[in-house]
Amino acid sequence: MNSIQFLLLISSALFSLGVFGLLTRRHAIGLLLSLELILNAAILNFVVFGRLYGHTHAHAFALFIIALAACEAVVGLAIVINLYRHRKTVLTDQMQLLKG
């Protein structure tokens, strides 16, 4: 098997596992973990194709994705901790404050 194909297979497997986690987890932090899996699959794809075609922007995009993933994790965890403090829950199906 070509190494590109193997890496693409790994990346799509990571993405599908992340989707599986997003659909099954109830804990809000568990959802964040699955989201990190999905972002890593995207980064891996960027780096593979950047290596294949020798393009610098792929690496730059991967760096931007890592930076934005850090931001997303910080804000998400702040929201989770605040929610835990006020509502005493971290389960996504019990967060119904905005439910009409």
């Binding site: 790994i10 497997a13 990571l14 596992l17 992340g18 599986f20 986690g21 099954t24 987890r25 973990l33 699955s34 899996l37």
Partner: peptide, 9 residues
């Protein structure tokens, strides 16, 4: 990597 990803979810 894949084994660890399965464990994560």
């Amino acid at each position: 990597t894949l084994m660890a990803a399965v464990w994560v979810v």
